[in-house]
């Protein structure tokens, strides 16, 4: 169980609890105002990242402290967790409204204005004023049915994109994203290791060595460099400490040798997030 499950999960996984998507929570925490400020001031967040990064480069003694502060700030406001395809589909089934929106991260990292990889769930951004100052974002919204959303998720899964859920004023969950290296959270946490912005999934992948033929096709899809290859016995191995439990590798395996197991069953892995 991750920290968010313990705080907001009511004994289940926190994203399985309907309360965390509810309209009550949305109005109670004033999420609408938060989202408005968040989208409008997204570029200002860069100043914080630049300071954190400078502290890391200088090997400053305050770096550890700023990193902790930044992580706890993100935990309160905008935090994520990696989820496998099945869980993403389960969330889609729980939702009344799903809207496909252009990915803000890819706008910032690639300059792409219309990379529509993200889903806003529960909140419908079109009638509200959340995206008011972003006419370009507003023009490219698309309301999806559950089936359309699931079909897209499966397509993204095969392309090797990892699914993640995001909070706006934790624990309100407002979106599902499909990420790769152009995701800002991925770049800050995985590529640059500046601070923690998302938790690993509740799962960890395992390869059945009897079925693995060592074709290495799973290795191509892993975004976290967690799959290692042994040429002497022609098998692939998943490094459980690096595995984020996204389950994307499964779609590449012809032998169906990869399964997702519960992270909490392994005593030493239960604390690795």
């Amino acid at each position: 169980m991750c920290e968010l499950c313990i705080k907001h999960g009511e004994g289940k996984k926190w994203y399985e609890v309907m309360k965390n998507y509810s309209k009550e929570l949305y109005s109670q925490n004033n999420v609408e105002q938060f989202m408005k400020d968040f989208f409008l001031n997204f570029h200002k967040e860069f100043n914080g990242i630049i300071k954190l990064d400078a502290a890391k480069r200088k090997r400053s003694i305050v770096y550890g402290f700023i990193r902790k502060m930044a992580t706890s700030h993100m935990k309160k406001n905008h935090f994520g967790q990696i989820i496998p395809l099945e869980d993403a589909e389960m969330i889609i089934d729980m939702m009344q409204s799903i809207t496909r929106v252009p990915c803000i991260c890819r706008g910032l990292t690639r300059g792409e204005k219309n990379a529509r990889y993200c889903f806003a769930i529960g909140v419908d951004p079109s009638p509200s004023d959340i995206l008011g100052d972003y006419p370009h974002l507003k023009e490219n919204l698309e309301t999806l049915t559950r089936d359309e959303a699931k079909k897209l998720l499966r397509k993204f899964d095969q392309e090797g994109l990892i699914h993640s859920i995001w909070t706006f004023k934790t624990p309100f969950i407002g979106g599902i994203c499909n990420c790769d290296r152009d995701c800002l959270a991925y770049r800050i946490q995985v590529t640059a290791d500046l601070m923690q912005i998302m938790f690993k999934g509740e799962y960890v992948a395992e390869i059945d060595l009897d079925q693995c033929v060592g074709c290495r096709s799973c290795q191509k899809l892993c975004q976290f460099g967690a799959i290692e290859f042994s040429s002497s016995n022609l098998k692939c191995y998943i490094n459980p400490m690096k595995c984020y439990g996204c389950g994307v590798c499964r779609s590449a395996c012809n032998k169906e040798a990869i399964t997702l197991n519960d992270r909490n069953q392994l005593p030493e892995l239960a604390g690795v997030w």
Binding site: L40, F42, H43, F46, I49, I50, D53, A54, K56, R57, I104, G107, L108, T109, R110, G111, E112, K113, D133, Y134, H136, L137, R187, I188, T191, A192, L194
Partner: peptide, 19 residues
């Protein structure tokens, strides 16, 4: 890219993660 959408800081490129 600093804010490809907003009118402020429109389309400016900035080195952010220098490490």
């Amino acid at each position: 890219v600093l804010s490809p959408y907003a009118e402020v800081a429109k389309g400016r490129i900035k080195p952010v993660i220098m490490s």
